[in-house]
Design a binder for these strands. Structure first.
Lengths: 254, 254
DNA sequence: CGCGTGCTTGAACATTATCAAACAGTGTGG
DNA sequence: CCACACTGTTTGATAATGTTCAAGCACGCG
């Protein structure tokens, strides 16, 4: 499986690893970058550009879906709900990510726009045909799902076994890591397009706890909360450490 | 994508759904049943039967893996660890399940035998070649991963948003549901091959809490703990309700 | 300028973890 | 065959992490 191995590893774009455990795939599970011109061209032929406003629902959980989408610009959240309204954001989608395939044409999550977004929409029939006639494409999407699965399992570990502060720190570190990097710059500023509630539902916490954790990290001079949606990373190594190490993360919230 | 849709839905064998939310794929994310003779035959040609003893590690997290496996008999656990030893069991593997592919030939979980097991082992090279030359097979494995991903996301919702008792009840209900069914029988007995610790690490709880929750369910006449590894479901509807409904699940542990 | 929504902070509480000890089941060796 | 030890399970008491309820604050928008 030489071909498989190379293709698969290419599915996760190389980026400076955080640690052995925190796979960079975390917040960027799926992306086809410019390194696959042939597939991109094939997709372009069957895709339509569409725009959605902030907070629009693109696909509804449980509804039959007849399109596959790729994010061109903006961010989205994939949401799963319990009957009583408890919410889980299974992932945030960034430019390059695909969503909407699999599971018998039934959406497993709702997908909602975090801001005004541009998507490329592919009819599922055409998309399926592409997979059928183009084994390389099929392989690439296979790899894509595999790394998405791995990312989901990482989050399972994160949510089920890390403390609140570790989760928050990991989230920020990973999010910062995939930001359009002014890499080395000391005062790295991260734009968070999602609300505190979204972060809470992604990490399995409450809005209040998220807010308090940010205050804690600020008090430790690890971050600075510029405004509700902008956070500066003041001490990146400390942030990573707080995400990995229960002891360093600190026993007390305050 | 007619073919895709039908194949995908076939990937999840039909079974009486628990509720809209609790997809039956949960504990049985991946399985190729006898309904695919051609693929089965193809696989048989490249597979080798291997046996492992209880507690043996079949693949180690992070290690390069050169085989894909299918469970023939017995059960296994897929484990992910934090550097300090905190553990998460991402899933339990049952007969029919595949594991070991994807992620650039690097294992993302350790996989360990819960009891003495029999596996079919496929060299990754042959397996990759099969996917390359057989689009139908590729499609079926694609579907398989898709439902596994969906299952992982279900667990994300379970672990991040359900209470301890809800998790336990959901786990038991789903596990019972995929048991070799003496379906209607009032006194349905479930064999749990994994330890309390395994259950705890699967649900994001502690051994003690798991034990207490079983005691609670027993006190409510919903289950009976025959011995450490055998549990009788006395009131299946109540078990389902306890897994779905925070209110019915009960405010107090005791 | 004032309202509304979302964010922050505070205090009390609850769920679940931790620590500790007893108990049970299983296999081993005398 | 029984005693013993070992490991996994159960139960109890205490404590902590994170939630809930509640109030104030701030930013953005009409």
């Amino acid at each position: 499986m030489t071909a498989l191995a190379t293709t698969i590893s290419a599915a996760v774009p190389g980026r400076r690893a955080l640690t052995t455990r925190e796979r960079p795939a975390y917040l960027r599970p799926v992306s086809t970058s410019a390194d696959r011109p042939s597939l991109a061209a094939e997709l372009d032929r069957i895709g339509t550009v569409v725009n959605y406003d902030r907070d629009k629902t693109i696909v509804e959980e449980g509804a039959a879906s007849s399109y596959v989408f790729r994010v061109a610009s903006g961010m989205l959240r994939a949401v799963r709900l319990l009957p009583d309204g408890r919410r889980c954001i299974t992932r945030f989608l960034v430019p390059g990510d695909f969503f909407g395939f699999g599971n018998g044409g039934t959406a497993t999550d709702s997908v909602e726009a975090l801001n005004n977004i541009t998507l490329v929409r592919y009819p599922m029939t055409s998309f399926g045909a592409l997979l059928d006639r183009n084994p390389t494409a099929a392989r690439q999407f296979f790899d894509m799902i595999c790394s998405e699965l791995s990312a989901a399992q990482d989050r399972l570990l994160l949510v089920s076994r890390k403390t609140a502060l570790e989760r928050m720190a990991t989230f920020l570190a990973l999010f910062a890591d995939r930001q359009p990097a002014k890499a080395g710059s000391k005062d790295m500023t991260v734009k968070l397009p999602m609300s505190r509630g979204d972060i809470a539902d992604h990490l399995g916490l409450t809005v209040e706890t998220v807010s308090r954790l940010l205050a804690t990290l600020r008090a430790r001079q690890i971050i600075d909360v510029r405004n509700a949606s902008e956070i500066a990373i003041l001490n990146h190594p400390a942030l990573l450490a707080a995400g990995e190490n229960a002891f360093q993360a600190g026993v007390n919230l305050l």
